[in-house]
């Protein structure tokens, strides 16, 4: 919709306002992480003392490590299961219970976290009563919960990619003697790898970010980073959380910027090759 008529003044001012709205709070929060004073009202001069306080805070460090571990494991399993689900929905035309399957994939996306969390907790409690597993709730149960809701997102991403992919590529491979499983590994997976990677990243962030489901499914022992942050910020401003936020948001933004720069560059490269080739 690029018109020769550029955006009007009204639109421009809304844009400016919108982006200010999105970014000013984050920037202010980051700025305060360098404030020497513990009070937000007073600018006590530049200092990195909240960062060293953070590094000495074992609770936060442990929670962060636990969160990273859960995120990495659950994202990996969610990618595997979500990809399989996407394959089943787009490449296995008919099977019993397909209708229910479609619903099961879509449902976690619209389910309020409180309900997902509550229901999983009740499941774990019932399972424990019935078969004695899980013995206690903690990292494992959180991981299972995260796999469950993240795999739905990945299934949707993978499904969209597969639906737009020419199915005759896989048929050609099968025609040349590839067994269904070989075809999946030789052709399908390499071609949907970018979607799987972005799915993995999404699952990783969702897991890293999740408070509600983790609170429900975690036990006494395990506290993830969001749970620790939540219990701290419920009481109001705590400057070491500002420092933590600066580190997290800074790292993530940098990572995303680098990733998109790489993607952009490779796109340019292929289009340049195309023109010369």
């Amino acid at each position: 919709m690029s018109s020769h008529r550029g955006p009007s003044t009204f639109i421009l001012s809304v844009l400016c306002f919108g982006f200010a709205f999105l970014y000013v709070p984050i920037l202010v929060m980051m700025a305060y992480s360098f404030n020497d004073s513990a009070l937000a009202t007073v600018w006590g001069g530049f200092s990195t003392r909240w960062y060293s306080a953070l590094l000495n805070n074992e609770q936060i460090i442990n929670a962060a490590l636990l969160s990273l571990k859960i995120a990495a494991v659950s994202a990996t399993f969610a990618t595997i299961l979500g990809t399989l689900a996407g394959l089943a929905l787009t490449r296995m035309r008919r099977f019993r219970g397909r209708f229910l399957f479609t619903g099961l994939i879509a449902a976690p996306l619209v389910m309020p976290e409180v309900i997902t969390g509550l229901s999983l907790l009740l499941l774990f409690v019932s399972l424990q009563q019935l078969i004695g597993w899980p013995v206690s709730r903690g990292a494992t149960t959180i991981t299972i919960a995260h796999i469950t809701f993240a795999m739905a997102y990945i299934a949707v991403i993978v499904q969209a990619r597969l639906a737009s992919m020419d199915e005759s590529l896989e048929e050609a491979a099968m025609d040349l003697g590839g067994r269904p499983m070989q075809v999946t590994f030789d052709i399908t997976l390499p071609l949907i790898a970018p979607s799987m990677i972005s799915g993995w990243l999404l699952a990783f962030t969702l897991s890293l970010d999740d408070l509600v489901i983790a609170s429900f499914t975690s036990g006494a022992g395990a506290s993830t980073l969001p749970m620790v942050i939540f219990s701290k910020i419920k009481l109001g401003v705590t400057p070491d959380i500002n420092a933590l936020a600066t580190i997290i948001i800074g790292t993530l933004s940098l990572g995303i910027l680098i990733a998109s720069w790489i993607i952009l560059r490779s796109q340019r490269k292929t289009s340049a090759q195309r023109q010369s080739g």
Partner: peptide
């Protein structure tokens, strides 16, 4: 199944 047949195919989209 397709992978056991002594025929090969050239696809409309080349694939």
């Amino acid at each position: 199944p397709a992978y056991d047949r002594p025929v090969n195919m050239m696809f409309q989209s080349y694939a």
